[in-house]
Amino acid sequence: MTRTGTSEETAAAAAPRRGRPRSEAAEQAIVAAVLRLIERGYPLALLSVEGIAAEAGVGKATIYRRWPNKEELLLDVLQRIDEPEPPRHDGSVRDALVAVLEFLRQAALARRAHASLAVLSTELRSMPELYRRYHEKVIEPRRARMRELLARGVESGEIRGDLDLDLLGDLVIGPMLSRTLLRPGAELDDPALSATIVDTVLQGIAPPVTGSGAPPL
């Protein structure tokens, strides 16, 4: 029988590839350690790779193999704790806007339920570069999707087309963000809240005109 390979080739094929596989368990332990430290009151700016590694029970090298610096680790943590966004809604633009607001409502409820998430959102502004990166990677893509959705509504005739799309987006999501960021004790448990906000914005807040006269001032 003819041999199809040398013993050296066989050994090379059986040898493990260079580099260490990423450990999901280690990553989860590191992310959990960051959240625990924040919940205990450690400011973001004062967190250190050494402290995070000690809390997670790993070496600093384990962190640096996954993230080049503390800022990238914190950015990853921020992205991981975000609720998954709803898939594209191909129905009416009204229903798609309700889905967007429902995503924001659920994310706000999650933050209220976990102190570390609420603190993390507040502390983010203490690190301007991290705040900028978060907006670049998370917030701006969401705003772009909102503009695309509203443009679809203008094209379909569901939304008036004489206003700036960014302004329209602010009008839709502003009430939910106000309850999330500016009024931490405001009601968010009502499952009809998202639809109420969207329908109110789409219909306007002026009272309906009755008869031929203008509504009373």
Rank of each mutant, 00 (worst) to 15 (best):
residue 59 G to L: 02
residue 146 M to S: 03
residue 140 E to M: 14
residue 45 A to C: 12
residue 54 A to F: 08
residue 106 Q to N: 15
residue 14 A to H: 12
residue 37 L to S: 00
residue 156 S to M: 01
residue 137 K to F: 12
residue 181 L to P: 09
residue 83 E to P: 04
residue 32 A to S: 06
residue 60 K to C: 08
residue 40 R to M: 07
residue 128 P to C: 09
residue 181 L to T: 12
residue 102 E to C: 00
residue 22 R to G: 07
residue 103 F to Q: 13
residue 84 P to K: 04
residue 95 D to E: 10
residue 96 A to H: 02
residue 100 V to T: 09
residue 173 I to L: 11
residue 183 R to W: 13
residue 149 L to R: 00
residue 141 P to R: 04
residue 169 G to E: 05
residue 19 G to T: 04
residue 96 A to Q: 02
residue 54 A to V: 15
residue 140 E to T: 06
residue 147 R to W: 02
residue 205 I to C: 14
residue 50 E to C: 06
residue 50 E to K: 06
residue 86 P to M: 02
residue 150 L to Q: 01
residue 60 K to D: 08
residue 217 L to W: 15
residue 25 A to W: 02
residue 150 L to Y: 04
residue 134 Y to F: 09
residue 159 I to N: 02
residue 206 A to W: 12
residue 56 A to C: 00
residue 204 G to C: 14
residue 5 G to T: 12
residue 23 S to H: 09
residue 76 D to M: 04
residue 215 P to K: 15
residue 143 R to C: 07
residue 166 D to L: 06
residue 192 A to L: 13
residue 40 R to S: 08
residue 136 E to I: 07
residue 137 K to E: 13
residue 57 G to V: 05
residue 15 A to F: 14
residue 101 L to T: 11
residue 89 H to D: 15
residue 54 A to H: 12
residue 70 K to W: 12
residue 70 K to E: 12
residue 23 S to L: 05
residue 137 K to A: 10
residue 194 S to H: 04
residue 8 E to M: 11
residue 128 P to E: 03
residue 41 G to Y: 13
